[in-house]
Design a protein around this nucleic acid. Structure first.
Length: 284
DNA sequence: CGGCAAACCTGCGAGC
DNA sequence: TGCTCGCAGGTTTGCC
């Protein structure tokens, strides 16, 4: 589910609710996520204060005092929901697939819920973060300063794999998953099956613009809620209403629709076992 | 090394 | 109504 805009939205929501808050109680109800949860997690978290919440790729990084970082990945179906509880209110029991519940001294309660358990939770020392096995091979931040056409040309040079798959390869560029890959390639006017190495510098410059435009718009909309995803406060995201092509097989893309062109409409193909959506008329 | 399939899990909607 | 099948926003692993 969650790609960069969803993770970014959750991070912002967590920061708003939790900055400066101290962990009072931790309930851990499951340890076998995609990776095992760290041992003695509850003991290690109680009493810690949240200093900051930030994002790297699709990872949520929660900075605690004493230079520790609580790391989450939401996988396909993970949610992190914050709610404020009145102190008089009886503490709620963990719901189905609630794996971790944190209570804070400011009355907030945070639940990590993940039905498919593709998510990850870890607690690491800040100085070891750069060497964390999940983070070492991550590529460029698409909204960062290194997202430049000349750098992508070099990165994609000689790659025979489809540009769509390469765009989702987190070792090269991070944060882009199945939805935003299709959306970005549409706005860049690039056919998803093109080999990455065949894209010109000019096309990659367009792709960068498209990626950034789509990701920023999605962040402004609070992400895309297809099924599981919620913002940190439990609200839906609503960028799914602005998809140009994703999950719109057979419909007209915005361009074709506006210009009343008769085309075959948006096509769905399968790449790397996953659905890709594109407009054969606008994407070359 | 590249490319692809399968694996990890649960839930849901479609079709019978 | 109830069953089976296919598919779902991610990532890693293993095989050719």
């Amino acid at each position: 589910m969650p790609e960069l805009p969803e993770v970014e939205t959750v991070c912002r929501g967590l920061l708003r609710a939790l900055q400066g808050a101290k962990v009072l109680h931790v309930g851990q109800y499951r340890k076998d996520l995609r990776l095992p949860m760290p041992p003695r997690l509850a003991t290690r978290l109680v009493g810690k204060t949240i200093r900051n919440v930030r994002r790297r790729a699709k990872y949520i990084l929660i900075d605690l005092d004493q230079d520790e970082v609580l790391l989450f990945h939401l996988g396909m179906s993970g949610r992190i929901i914050v709610r404020s509880t009145k102190s008089s209110e009886k503490q709620e029991r963990p719901g189905k697939h609630d794996h971790l519940i944190l209570r804070f001294d400011n009355g907030c309660e945070v639940r990590f819920n993940d039905p498919r358990r593709f998510g990850v939770c870890d607690l690491v020392a800040c100085e070891a973060l750069d060497r964390h096995p999940l983070l070492t091979h991550l590529g460029l931040e698409p909204l960062g300063p290194k997202m430049r056409a000349d750098i992508l040309v070099e990165l994609f040079a000689g790659k025979k794999a489809a540009i769509k798959d390469v765009l989702m390869d987190q070792r090269l560029v991070v944060g882009i998953g199945n939805i935003y890959a299709s959306e970005s390639l549409f706005w860049a006017g690039i056919k998803p099956i093109r080999s990455a190495g065949s894209c010109t510098k000019q096309e990659l410059a367009r792709l960068i613009k498209a990626v950034q435009k789509v990701l920023k718009a999605a962040i402004r909309a609070g992400g895309s809620s297809l099924r599981d995803y919620r913002q940190a406060d439990g609200e839906l995201g609503y960028f799914q209403h602005h998809f140009a092509v994703y999950d719109r097989e057979g419909e007209f893309c915005p361009g074709c629709n506006c210009e009343k062109k008769r085309t075959s409409g948006i096509q769905r193909i399968v790449q790397g076992g996953r659905s890709t959506y594109y407009c054969p008329f606008k994407q070359v």
